[in-house]
Amino acid sequence: MVALTLRLCAAAAALLLACGPVLAQVEPERAEAQIKAAFLYKFGGFIEWPPRAFARPDASFTIGVIGAEAIAAELEQLTAGRTVQDRPVVVRRLKPADALSGVQVLFVGRAESARLGEVLDAARSEPLLIVTESADALAKGSTINFVQEANRVRFDVALAQAERASLRISARLLAVARKVVTSS
């Protein structure tokens, strides 16, 4: 029994090993989108939202995506059937002017970086996690900002906006952040 399990595991691991580099090599952009989508989904496990963030106790966990179709598509694929904090995950493609109520995570892609300030201002008072992928986004009011470092996706965290949004970010998440900005 143990031997069989071991062998199955080894087979699965071998498959993963075989696939991983291929994904990374063939389409670096898609790989980046996949990683960022996964990060967006997984942030949910390390952050506590205030109760007011959810309209109802059984409301879904909503990730809003602005200006990043590839990531939205990956997210949809990734989160299908999955939950965050025991809530089903819903991916919503938003426009910069859309209302943000009922959204727990908001991702603003590079495509909308020009209108970043506008979007962030609108979201400033909402209990949501703002994730961006633009330089100096943290200064503009983002909470987490993806950065590229040595072919690896990393992120910086700014605690000012998190405090405003009443989010409690796990120390474990902070531990793996490239940089944590404590005050603006």
Binding site: F39, K42, F46, R152, V153, S170, L173, A175, V176
Partner: peptide, 14 residues
Amino acid sequence: RTTVAALTFDDPRV
């Protein structure tokens, strides 16, 4: 438990 975040967010250094 302590390395969940590192694994999740692909941070070998941590």
